[in-house]
Simulated assay, not measured.
Amino acid sequence: MFEIRVICPPDDADRIGAALTAAFNTGPARQYPTRDGKRTRLYFTADHRDSSTTPTHTESE
Results as ranks from 00 to 15, higher is better:
Arg49Ile: 09
Leu42Cys: 05
Ala46Gln: 04
Arg15Ser: 15
Asn25Ala: 11
Leu20Ser: 06
Asp36Ile: 07
Gly27Gln: 10
Gly37Arg: 01
Pro9His: 14
Asp12Leu: 15
Ser60Phe: 11
Ile16Trp: 01
Thr21Gly: 15
Arg41Val: 08
Glu61Pro: 14
His57Gly: 01
Arg41Leu: 14
Thr53Lys: 02
Thr40Trp: 00
Ile7Asp: 02
Ala13Thr: 13
Arg5Asn: 11
Arg15Leu: 15
Glu61Asn: 10
Thr56His: 09
Ile4Trp: 08
Gly27His: 02
Pro9Asn: 12
Asp11Ser: 14
Arg39Leu: 08
Ala13Tyr: 01
Glu3His: 13
Ile4Asn: 11
Glu59Asp: 10
Thr45Gly: 05
Leu42Ala: 04
Thr21Glu: 07
Ala13Pro: 03
Cys8Glu: 04
Met1Ser: 14
Cys8His: 09
Met1Val: 11
Ala22Gln: 09
Arg35Tyr: 03
His57Phe: 08
His48Lys: 10
His57Ile: 13
Thr45Leu: 10
Pro10Gly: 03
Gln31Thr: 07
Arg30Phe: 03
Ile7Lys: 13
Asp14Gly: 10
Glu3Tyr: 08
Ile16Arg: 06
Pro28His: 08
Tyr43Gly: 00
Val6Arg: 10
Asp14Thr: 14
Arg49Gly: 03
Arg5Ser: 12
Ser60Tyr: 07
Glu59Phe: 11
Leu20Trp: 06
Ala18Tyr: 06
Ala22Lys: 14
Tyr43His: 07
Cys8Pro: 04
Ala13Phe: 01
Pro33Trp: 00
Pro33Phe: 00
Tyr32Cys: 01
His57Gln: 12
Asp11Pro: 00
Thr34Lys: 06
Thr26Gln: 05
Arg35Gly: 13
Phe24Tyr: 15
Ser60His: 07
Asn25Leu: 13
Ser52Trp: 00
Ile4Pro: 06
Ser51Leu: 08
Gln31Leu: 10
Arg49Trp: 01
Ile7Ala: 06
Arg41His: 01
Arg5Leu: 11
Pro55Ala: 02
Asp12Pro: 00
Thr54Pro: 00
Glu59Trp: 06
Arg35Lys: 09
Thr40Tyr: 01
Leu42Arg: 07
Met1Pro: 15
Thr54Met: 09
Thr40Gln: 10
Tyr32Ile: 08
Ala29Met: 08
Ala29Val: 15
